[in-house]
């Protein structure tokens, strides 16, 4: 049982790092970035290409992926989402166009990675890092799992507290509630939007590197599967609540692990998403979302 809980925590930590970036951009600057999965994948792919030429240790590989993720997300904001938001007549049409724009942006890195790899799995074989297996109190884990859990929970709680207590966090939350009023109060929306997207992209890159280390390899399409899960996590936790994202990630991972532990692997998606559906029937705003549709 304890081993299953540990497995769920490890899986939840990966989901959390991935979903945090998406939730951050969605709940503050109002960008539901459907290119987040492609950013995740292409960051890992960039690190894969680099490790094919240079043998790097794990921290360096992670750094490459984080930098690539931040760069991709910044470019996405500057070249796609920024112009869309400037030209949109109202917030609702901007959201819809960003959603479609994100799908379009996602197609580019996906096509490049598929072309280069012929859709075969890729990993960090060139890295000098080798996962070590150890046991603590009868629980078997790898050094990769340890890094993922520490990074996931640490970053999750860090982002949550930063958003709740810092001045920049307050400014971001103000944009989430009413961007026009926030601007009148002196909040520089464009700069904060760029910074938020870069942070979200860096988190996607971090998730890409950590998950690739954990799984051994991912495929170009792996980001799409995570995107659906992240979407479910944010909705389950409640849009605008970073604490909700943390809980949502571990609830989803816990449900999946439980179904797999019961040897009912074909029911994983049905049970996990059914559970989310049931929660939303009882609490349409999600576990920690506010009743009124407002971003924190």
């Amino acid at each position: 049982m304890a081993q299953h809980i540990l497995n769920a925590v490890a899986l939840g930590s990966v989901y959390l790092v991935f979903a945090l970036g998406m939730a951050l951009a969605w709940s503050t600057i109002g960008i539901l970035n459907f290119a987040h999965g492609a950013t995740f994948m292409f960051s890992a792919f960039t690190a894969h290409v680099v490790t094919q030429h240079v043998a790097l240790p794990m921290p360096a590989v992670v750094l490459v992926a984080v930098a690539a993720g931040a760069l991709i997300a910044t470019l996405t904001q500057v070249l796609a989402f920024g112009p869309i938001m400037r030209r949109a007549t109202d917030h609702r049409s901007a959201e819809l166009r960003i959603l479609i724009g994100g799908i379009g942006v996602a197609a580019i890195p996906l096509a490049i990675a598929e072309r280069v790899t012929a859709s075969a799995p890729f990993g960090f074989r060139g890295s000098t890092y080798q996962a070590q297996v150890f046991e603590i109190a009868g629980l078997r884990m790898t050094t990769t799992v340890l890094v993922i859990v520490v990074a996931g929970i640490g970053i999750g709680v860090g982002v949550w507290r930063w958003l709740a207590t810092s001045r920049q966090g307050l400014a971001l939350r103000a944009i989430g509630v009413d961007s026009e009023t926030a601007s009148l109060m002196g909040v520089d929306r464009s700069t904060l939007a760029l910074g938020t997207m870069a942070t979200a992209g860096a988190l996607a890159g971090l998730a890409g590197a950590l998950l690739t280390f954990q799984l051994g390899a991912i495929a170009p399409a792996s980001g799409d599967q995570l995107l659906i899960k992240a979407f479910a996590i944010v909705v389950l936790g409640g849009l605008g609540s970073m604490g909700g994202v943390i809980v949502g990630a571990f609830v989803l991972a816990g449900a999946e692990t439980f179904v797999l532990a019961m040897n009912q692997g074909t029911w994983v998606d049905a049970v996990s998403f059914g559970l989310i559906f049931a929660v939303l029937l009882l609490r349409p705003q999600g576990l920690f979302g506010r009743k009124e549709v407002r971003r924190t």
């Binding site: 899986l11 954990q214 799984l215 991912i218 599967q225 692997g265 994983v268």
Partner: peptide
């Protein structure tokens, strides 16, 4: 059994 979406 697992699904095509199973990654871990």
């Amino acid at each position: 059994p697992v699904q095509s979406t199973t990654q871990d």
